[in-house]
Nucleic acid binder design. Structure first.
Length: 235
DNA sequence: AAATTTATCAACCGCGACCGA
DNA sequence: ATCGGTCGCGGTTGATAAATT
């Protein structure tokens, strides 16, 4: 038995989970609840640590997880919330139903970090994709950038041409790449944040002048999805 | 076609917070 | 009050796939 084995110091299983392990874990979590992970690990006979069981359940096995690629809408939310909260992945994940903190964290590191950096530095990110890579374009002069390993590029780099088939001037407007839905969602979040900020900001300092108090943004117990509920009605 | 590099993401680790005895 | 067990979070690693040379 794994319990006995563990007690005797036998090494715990590590690495990729197998289907049988997943089934076993699901069964025992259903029986015992999402608590006491060490107990679940022992009772199930899995040669895994409680931590590992918890991780597997929360990130891959629990119901209602949304699989598949992060959508543009979700990406925008992640970018904005990260700008507000920093690396508070679990907090951000709570705003994205069906997504896990680990998934968001990985997505940030692999896809969004450069994007956020570019935006922070006063550039904007234009989601153009040639099927392999995303491309960044600096605000204003499109010809000022050279293609390099950071995936920054010129219009020419992207299209292989600078003729009229590439609407470089048009790219100076970020909204051109946003769907109406995306723009609506984005604006809604910004409005919500602005409202919250204006109400909470200055609460403790009695001043409307510039000050050092930190704006209270979206409170933990608020539900942005309720606020933005109308967005799901696309009629 | 083979070797090398880069990107992706599942999984692990360490640490601090929390909770109950 | 404190102590040990457990949980949750964020950072990091490592295996694999994909792309490039």
């Amino acid at each position: 038995m794994a319990f006995k084995a563990t007690m005797q110091g036998e090494k715990l299983q590590r690495g990729t989970w197998h289907e049988e392990e997943d089934e076993l874990l699901s069964t025992f979590v259903t029986l015992m609840g999402e608590r006491r992970w060490d107990s679940i690990a022992r009772a199930s006979g899995l040669k895994r640590s409680g931590k590992s069981c918890r991780f597997r359940w929360l990130n891959y096995l629990r119901p209602n997880l949304k699989r598949g690629h992060i959508t543009i809408e979700e990406e925008q939310i992640i970018l904005r919330l990260h700008e507000l909260w920093g690396n508070k992945w679990s907090r951000i994940a709570r705003r994205l139903p069906g997504r896990t903190d680990n998934e968001i964290k990985n997505y940030w590191r692999t896809h969004l970090r450069k994007k956020a950096q570019a935006q922070h530095e006063g550039n904007f990110y234009c989601k153009l994709n040639n099927g392999k890579q995303d491309f960044y374009f600096q605000k204003g002069d499109m010809s000022g950038l050279n293609h390099n390993s950071e995936n920054h590029g010129t219009a020419e780099d992207f299209c292989g041409t600078t003729d009229d088939s590439f609407d470089a001037p048009g790219l100076s407007n970020f909204s051109l790449i946003s769907s109406p839905y995306e723009t609506q969602l984005s604006d809604s979040i910004l409005d919500f944040i602005k409202d919250q900020s204006e109400i909470k900001h200055h609460e403790g300092c009695n001043s409307l002048e510039s000050c050092f108090c930190y704006p209270a943004l979206i409170p933990d117990d608020s539900n942005i999805w309720d606020y933005a509920g109308f967005l799901w009605n696309m009629d």
